[in-house]
Write a protein that binds this DNA or RNA. Structure first.
Lengths: 337, 337
DNA sequence: CTGAAAGCGCTTACAG
DNA sequence: CTGAAAGCGCTTACAG
């Protein structure tokens, strides 16, 4: 059986195709009763619009893109994305759009992916994550004419930004540790070329300074568990090891705890540890991990909402999301006297 | 500047649209030189085909769907998906297709999602994961006329299946523990209504039987870290606790280790533990987790390849993937005498 | 090997 | 408030 088209609806409702289209698109110029009749007929005969025909006419794809250049293993360890995507999805599906996802292996492949999406008009806009220093993507996307929303703010970008201040989580972590009596706190940071890596690191330094302690024990990593473990080794090898470590994400914190345990340290007494993102597993490691909570789903909703506004109205305001605070568990305690 | 169309290419190459289309689609009936000239012109003027126009003509969308009904938190803890998706992507992008991803909250929403994808002809086919007992999806998809490939084999499904025998990993884990001298081994299983949960459990029971030990200490969970922790509590509360636990995934194994540590047990001497999936973090917890490796990326490639074959040829053979074996680390050892 | 033409299913001025 | 018609950019019989 042929899939019903707009013409079938028109005939059945005894009106023109135009009118059906107007009714479907909620345009003015259709009397109330006519509109109702049309919609009733449409649903009765199981009509649904052909996206490709509509796309061809309107020059839109009714899809939104997300392309990520990261090692899948590192994405896998990051609790952020599934929840983020679930949030994005929630608002997209409400408005009849769809998410096109692309995982690529390199930054070059990422640019190629954007070019293809643009050339093929596969998406009406994109969400840009993992912002980097001097990120070339905002300019590229402007060039390509692809509307974009960035997660976080980049210098020189005209794209609307949706930001959640993760500074706050680090600041709270440091304050919490200082209050417990720690004076010797280290930070295992993400890569500085990633904006959120740099920001968390800067927040660490600033918080230490505010507390009147040294903030220069920082080891940079790539956010992976393996590098987090190495960084912890390095810190614990110091002649005077830190009494607390603030990790820039949970996987590294957990790997760091593994190192500490393997050296026979008792946590939290010999070493306090904090994570970031409050992943599902954080509450279940030993000792349960103190971690800064983020709200990836809310972030996803806000970003998708902003992107749809941008696509439909040509502009959208920046959105600032509330930071979600520190969840204090058992991995932090006063240092040994 | 207008995006060039097939007509621009035709004019510039002084041929008809038809011929350009034939050349682009690698159809016979175009002389070699003409084809080359056409392709040269196309690339010179920056032509790329309009996917929506093509879709409208061919009744295809050049996209493939993946819809998942799971708690984002549980997906987040599962290292499987990012790598799986990366594998899928690799073969899709090679053939000019795109991945449409949908995360939904419930099994009902999942069915609705498939219906929408089908009605809108958003995708040419779908990948079906997390197969359940009496899974209604193969029948639904047949009804909807949506080509599908399942990850694993379901009774009564006509869809091609791509399977990786995860039985093997469990069998090896049990054999490894028995060889170390364990006689009292428990299993923290995934939900039985999920086929891979049930399969791993059955493999556990069978392996115990083969070794001549009891295989009836099984606790069922939902694969989440929280439930894994509870299950471990329960097992360790027994008057004679097991000396080893085989967990059906890594997050539960890690949570179980957390419980054991919190009770002052020493791992692996007081309790041996194995995981499943060999996630990135597994090597970095303490003690480093023995875990069955899977190959999600290979699985993704195979599934995507099979789906494309199915879409293009109307049929595709089942694919059996090699199991990847057990990675033995430090979380397993002989039991205390 | 090549071209003129219909058709895919919508949207949208335009004219009434 | 309504309708006839062009157009979006492809593919594909069909005729040469």
């Amino acid at each position: 059986m042929r899939k019903p088209t707009i013409l079938d609806v028109a005939r059945e409702a005894r009106v023109s195709k135009t009118l059906v289209s107007f009714a479907l698109n909620d345009r003015p110029g259709v009397s109330h009763e006519t509109r109702d009749r049309i919609l009733e007929v449409a649903s009765r005969i199981g009509y649904s619009r052909s996206v490709s025909a509509r796309s061809l006419s309107t020059n839109r794809s009714y899809a939104v893109g997300l392309v990520m250049a990261r090692d899948p293993q590192v994405i896998a360890a990051d609790p952020f994305f599934p929840s983020f995507i679930a949030g994005v999805e929630r608002v997209l599906s409400e408005r009849g759009l769809v998410l096109v996802l692309s995982f690529v292996e390199s930054v070059e492949a990422e640019a190629a992916s954007y070019r293809t999406l643009a050339a093929d008009r596969r998406v009406d806009g994109v969400l840009v994550t993992d912002l980097r220093e001097d990120d070339p993507r905002p300019a590229l996307l402007t060039d390509l004419g692809l509307p974009a929303v960035t997660l976080g703010r980049v210098a020189g970008s005209v794209a609307p930004a949706v930001v959640m201040d993760d500074t706050d989580g680090i600041t709270q972590a440091v304050a919490h540790l200082v209050e417990a009596g720690h004076r010797d706190i280290a930070h295992v940071a993400g890569p500085t070329h990633l904006l959120h890596g740099a920001r968390r690191r800067a927040a660490f330094v600033a918080a230490c300074k505010a507390a009147g302690i040294s903030g220069d024990r920082v080891v940079e990593t790539d956010f992976s568990a393996g590098r987090g473990a190495e960084a912890t080794e390095h810190l614990l090898d110091a002649s005077v090891p830190p009494t607390a470590i603030v990790f820039a994400n949970d996987p590294m914190a957990i790997a760091g705890m593994g190192i500490a345990h393997s050296r026979g340290l008792r946590l939290p007494d010999d070493l306090s540890v904090t994570g970031f993102d409050d992943s599902d597993i954080a509450a279940h490691v030993f000792p349960a991990l103190t971690s800064a909570r983020t709200r990836p789903a809310r972030w996803g909703e806000a970003a998708a909402g902003a992107l749809l506004d941008l696509i439909e109205n040509g502009s959208a305001p920046d959105v600032d999301l509330e930071p979600a605070g520190l969840v204090v568990r058992k991995s932090t305690a006063p240092p040994r006297p």
